[in-house]
Nucleic acid binder design. Sequence first.
DNA 1: CCGCATCCAATTCGATACTG
DNA 2: CAGTATCGAATTGGATGCGG
Lengths: 115, 115
Amino acid sequence: MPVGRRPGSYVCGTDAAMDIIDGKWKVSILWALGEEGVRRFGELRRLLPGVTEKVLAAQLRELEADGIVHREDYAEVPPRVEYSLTEIGHQLNEALAPLGVWGKRHVLGVEPAVR
Amino acid sequence: MPVGRRPGSYVCGTDAAMDIIDGKWKVSILWALGEEGVRRFGELRRLLPGVTEKVLAAQLRELEADGIVHREDYAEVPPRVEYSLTEIGHQLNEALAPLGVWGKRHVLGVEPAVR
DNA sequence: CCGCATCCAATTCGATACTG
DNA sequence: CAGTATCGAATTGGATGCGG
């Protein structure tokens, strides 16, 4: 019932949050879902160059289990499955925004426009 | 000269920042250094239950290489080495704060005090 | 189209012992 | 005290092939 994969072993909230987004493609998935809102599986695959189907599916399932991503299976032929952020997922995305600003500035070397 | 371990392969700022704090103990190290300001090696080891000397030293060296942590070696006998956050490190810590709040609420289940 | 199964490669982390 | 050296375990991710 608790969220995350090592419940009870966190030393701080940041540590706990890191566990949720731990996975090579997870923040990219959040980023991709935050922009448009709803994405199909193949669409996500194209948005994340280099990811394999297996790993993408695995990370989506983990995010779903942690309540970050909603999965809608339309049970059609051919199959159609749509992914979107839950309310908590959107809040996570917002909580990640300052980190993105920091990364742009200090890792990518992009200074913010003007003063 | 660029910071991070996979320069040029980031799709967004958050992704880039994640690379810097990727490592089992790194956010805990940031957290420990953010509280007091200056910590000795053995002090950090005691603050992070379960970390081994080898891994702690390795992650500190990476954080130092990325400009997050400052290492001051006093070249004394017995040895004394002190670690602290750089200015960029402090900014990273601040950028992580919202994530910590989110984690406390949604992973640890701690609601914010009062309304 | 969406995904699972299997096998394999790479990386990371932990345990232990040792050194200036 | 503050590390390094070596080894092995565990986890993660990639490649490929098959299935509803």
